[in-house]
Design a protein around this nucleic acid. Structure first.
Ligand SMILES: [Mn+2]
Ligand SMILES: [Mn+2]
Ligand SMILES: [Zn+2]
Ligand SMILES: [Zn+2]
Lengths: 139, 139
DNA sequence: GAGTAAATCGTAGTCATTCCGAATTGGAAA
DNA sequence: TTTCCAATTCGGAATGACTACGATTTACTC
């Protein structure tokens, strides 16, 4: 997903276009990796020094709820990245140094559904953690 | 893993046998599901009303490090359960109402490793969330 | 039973996140 | 364009999980 589509989505759902929202979404589009609320505040400190933490958290949560962002919980923190909708359902490798992701097309949920016929399955999480090639050569 | 094996493990690694540790491990053996530090404190409130939160957190962390417990992060909280070592590597369905788990033998990591030859893979997480049959009929 | 390092207690501190009332503002309506 | 108001933001306080730490107690060794 890119900035323009995200702003359209906001407008179509009745949200206002504010400088805070533009800055947050532009940042996440540019970075293309998982960022925490703190990361966002730091990255916007120069451009928007008085954006309050409430604004950052509230908007990240809203964007996540409306699927503009995707969210995970890592190291005791909520992290967000632009929702990627290029393929269908998929999962991610996540670099623990830089936060960049790599798409994984494998998902074992069909087998799981068959193996647990009497369970209600609401959600699932599959993530692979490590070091991406860039960070490996840089290290 | 059961209580006796856990206590042996503690002894062999030079840890002392204390009433706090016994109570925490007995609870986790009995419950056989994911509990937070707060859950543990509440469950032991009658039997050990003055066990401090420091003691609970420190021991849960120690037990997790030495693989007596397994740990996950769920809803912004660390959760712990007895380490299950019946089969080899596996993952869990987790009931979001009662915390009970069901074993899943599927794991797609072989395919992932093949698909990411230039990445360093340190860890992975695969969890399925929902409602177990007991909670479904009870609800 | 005495000595000692480990463990616990009580409490204060940290950090991410949420809450809240007051002030501001985007955008619809006049 | 100006008015208006619900939505949004701000600033700061509150929350809740978790950690740190000095003082006290305790499990094990001798
Ligand atoms: Mn993706
Ligand atoms: Mn298991
Ligand atoms: Zn999947
Ligand atoms: Zn696995």
């Amino acid at each position: 997903m890119n900035f323009d589509i995200a702003m359209e989505r906001l407008k179509s759902e009745g949200f206002k276009r504010t400088p805070s929202r533009e800055a947050i979404l532009r940042l996440l589009e540019r970075e293309d990796r998982y960022l925490s609320a703190g990361d966002v505040r730091k990255a916007l400190a120069d451009e928007h020094p008085k954006m309050s933490q409430d604004t950052v958290y509230r908007n990240l949560s809203s964007f996540s709820e409306m699927k503009i962002l995707e969210e995970t919980e890592l190291g005791g923190e909520r992290k967000f990245r632009m929702h990627c909708d290029r393929h269908g359902h998929h999962h991610h490798f996540i670099c623990m140094e830089c936060g960049r992701t790599e798409e994984l097309d494998v998902c074992p949920m069909e087998q799981v559904s068959r193996a647990l016929p009497s369970f209600v399955i609401d959600d699932h999480k599959f993530e692979v953690y490590g070091q991406c090639p860039d960070c490996r050569t840089a290290g």
